[in-house]
Design a protein around this nucleic acid. Structure first.
Length: 208
DNA sequence: GGTGTGATCGTA
DNA sequence: ACGATCACACCA
């Protein structure tokens, strides 16, 4: 599979142009591909995602309107939204369609390493096993070398980050749950997390 | 396998 | 003050 990554083409923008809770589970099984500056590739197959919406979703960065940080969420479907959190981690999302003046994005929470394992291990020195390389949103972003300078990248063009379909279908019946890491009053009852059942690369999320 | 805690800083 | 988190210590 790793050899063919270079030949995969980015998902078309029409794939992203749908409501975020519809888009999110459809991304399970897709490849998150990172084209390095030296022309090599790293890639992970998505096994866990979460949807974040607009004004109706108090857990979303877009809930209180557009700011410098979340601007990409308001800039149309098919873009990479990268944010910095807990003073040390980057997390990656792809934007979805949203009602006028609102924002929406799918948080890419975990993946199975597919290509560029050596580069991932080098960037994820803390990972004890390959299973942990991309098992968590900040881990996934770190493994693929995704940082804030890539915020706003068009995932539908010939850029450094894109999603691709290699023929692996999304699970017919994905696991579903509340989202991880949301405190009380932040939409913690909304079941907008989807994952591939039984996949060992899903994050060991501690839900409060 | 699970829980508890500190790290570290941009954002609102 | 609080995060859309992680690694590590420690217990089982």
């Amino acid at each position: 599979v790793s050899v063919t990554v270079a030949r995969l083409s980015p998902l078309d923008r029409s794939c992203y142009d749908r409501p975020v809770a519809e888009l999110a589970p459809r991304l399970l099984g897709r490849l998150l591909v990172r084209r390095e500056e030296d022309g090599t590739f790293t890639a992970a197959r998505l096994v866990e995602v979460e949807a974040y919406g607009g004004v109706d979703d108090p857990g979303s960065h877009a809930h209180r309107g557009r700011t410098r940080r979340n601007a990409t969420m308001f800039s149309g479907p098919g873009l990479l939204y990268v944010y910095f959190t807990y003073g040390m981690h980057w997390c990656a999302n792809v934007t979805a369609a949203a009602p006028d003046g609102q924002g929406a994005a799918v948080l890419l929470r975990a993946g199975a390493p597919v290509a560029g394992l050596e580069a991932m291990r080098a960037r994820r020195a803390g990972a004890r096993t390959d299973r942990e390389l991309c098992a968590g949103p900040a881990r996934l972003a770190a493994a693929l070398g995704i940082t804030g300078d890539l915020d706003g990248t068009d995932c539908c063009g010939p850029g450094p980050v894109f999603l691709a379909d290699d023929g692996t279908p999304p699970p017919a019946r994905p696991g579903r749950s509340r989202r991880v890491g949301l405190g009380p009053g932040r939409g913690e009852t909304i079941r907008w997390r989807w994952y591939v059942r039984g996949d060992p690369h899903v994050s060991r999320a501690r839900v409060r």
